[in-house]
Design a protein around this nucleic acid. Sequence first.
DNA 1: CAGATCACCTGCTTGC
DNA 2: TGCAAGCAGGTGATCT
Length: 264
Amino acid sequence: MPELPEVENVVRTLAPHLTGRRILSASFTSRFVTPGDRRKLASHLTERTIVSVVRRGKFIVMTLDRGMLAVHLGMTGKLLVDGTAGEHTHGVFHLDHGTLLYDDPRQFGRIEWSATKLARVAALGPEPLEIEFEDFLERLRKRKMQIKPLLLNQKFLAGMGNIYVDEALFRAGIHPLASAARLSRARAGRLYQAIREVLQLAIEHRGSSISDYVDANGDRGDFQVHHRVYGREGKPCVECGSPIRKTVVAQRGTHFCAKCQKKS
DNA sequence: CAGATCACCTGCTTGC
DNA sequence: TGCAAGCAGGTGATCT
């Protein structure tokens, strides 16, 4: 579900509620979301103070007065402030003011604690909104892969997912199967700009709510209204009118305009 | 290294 | 109507 813009909005709505709060107790019930010893995890969090809440890629990273906590929302994860617990609530944080719930029907999300360094966060590539173009181009040239699978790889760039990769490639006029290493400097420049543009715009619209994405306050985003290819199979391309096509690339539904998006 | 396949889970939609 | 198949915003293991 949540990609960079959605996670960014979760963090923005979460941080004011959590920063400086103390965790009185916590409990976890899913062996998938919280693999390993769940009671031990809860004890690590008990009596800790939340120093900061930031986003890194698709991770929500909380720095505590002792240790760090990473939350990845997977496909259907939600962090809700003062929400109501339901059958898919797999984590509860009792705070000195209020409650934080972790909800996740599919349980693809993960909650991980570390005393020092969060390995999965440390392994992430650069932030797409922070990397410089020359650095981006250099990384692109190193990898002989199709562009869509590369952009989905979190070690290449951190935070892009299926929606925003399709949307950025459309805006750049690049076919999802185009060779990354062989993109001209000019086309790589268009891609770099398209990625920045679509992510920034989506953040301003508070993310895309396709089915059930909500921020920490339970509010939906509306960027889905502005999608140009994702979810628009068979509908006319906003640029040329030919029908948007849907195929499978990297095992993911892939939406594109065969006329506007070129392989080279 | 690149790419395909499968797996992890639940729920909603589609098609026969 | 009913039910099985297919699909979903993600990631990681394994095999060729």
